[in-house]
Design a protein around this nucleic acid. Structure first.
Lengths: 163, 163
DNA sequence: AGTATATAGTTCAGTTCTGAATTATCAATA
DNA sequence: TATTGATAATTCAGAACTGAACTATATACT
């Protein structure tokens, strides 16, 4: 799956058939989808030798990115951008893999605390060079100004979605 | 699921723990994912009363965006950005819904031709106002210059992925 | 204190997606 | 012509995801 051109041609024809069709917004949405699929596929391929898939990796990295690696499922739902049912499923999987520990939380009996095991820390630190290389490769076609601009614009688009 | 802030905080802490971590590329990738999920969820909600989900809609719109609404599964794979197995599944579903006709192709006996039925055209034209409104809403936080910039930058990022 | 509402997380059944294998067909090569 | 390599699409089993319902717990209200 390569270029965006096949998609774009379809959008242009659509505009011809239905002149009110918002070609630019549709192109943006399609580009986001296109990129997401590419990013997702490449990440899955890179992570496979580590016994992880992209969503599992996302969970682990969000937990790694806390001072003490501890998070509640709700916090993960927000930070990892996954539905709560999926956070449960993913964290169950990671528990089985010995990468996450699940305990109750003090103070609020409804809350669960998830923390990374030492095995997870070791695993994360073992794949960080590969992930680093992949992330740089995936964005490497843009220079640093372009990346900053893109970040600003994507964030602005995110702001248009309800909380 | 709202803001990008929870995710971003995790990225900043990660940078502290692993100074070689490419925070900017990681943020871009996460923003793309975040947006895709939002776009996907909103589209699914909007399309549900029409008896469609987002991927089915994508297929229909790609076919609508051709002069004669005819496409091969391979072309759809490229234009809709779906894996071929998924194109088969989606088009089977749309056939069952009476929205797509499937015939053999002249000249190459391996090829299948998919065309929209009149029911599909009618359905598409019935939801186009709603989709139009949704697309405009989803991108409405950006003015037209920003949208054009974003399109250019996203396309440039796409160019960095292999064909 | 009792009741109503909200929240955290999980369960569950159904939906959606994928990689690998497969079959038929086409194109290239010897 | 026969063989090899590539392509189009589908199948299939397993993986991944989701919405709605649910239970336990906390908060707000009377």
């Amino acid at each position: 799956m390569a270029s965006f051109a096949p998609t774009e041609q379809r959008l242009d024809v659509t505009l011809g058939k239905y002149p009110a069709f918002p070609r630019q917004p549709a192109a943006l949405v399609r580009l986001v989808k296109h990129l997401y699929k590419q990013i997702h596929d490449e990440a899955n391929a890179m992570l496979r030798p580590y016994g992880l898939n992209h969503p599992e990796y996302n969970i682990l990295m969000m937990m790694y990115g806390t001072p003490d690696t501890a998070m509640n499922p709700s916090q993960l739902t927000e930070a990892a951008g996954e539905k709560s049912a999926n956070v449960t499923r993913l964290t169950n999987e990671l528990c089985q893999k010995g990468l996450i520990a699940r305990t109750g939380s003090d103070g609020d009996r409804r809350k669960v605390t998830l923390t990374l095991t030492p095995a997870a820390i070791a695993l994360i630190e073992s794949f960080l060079p590969d992930i680093t290389a992949l992330l740089k490769r995936q964005t490497g076609h843009l220079d640093s100004t372009e990346q900053a601009d893109l970040e600003r614009l994507l964030k602005k688009m995110v702001e248009g979605f309800p909380a």
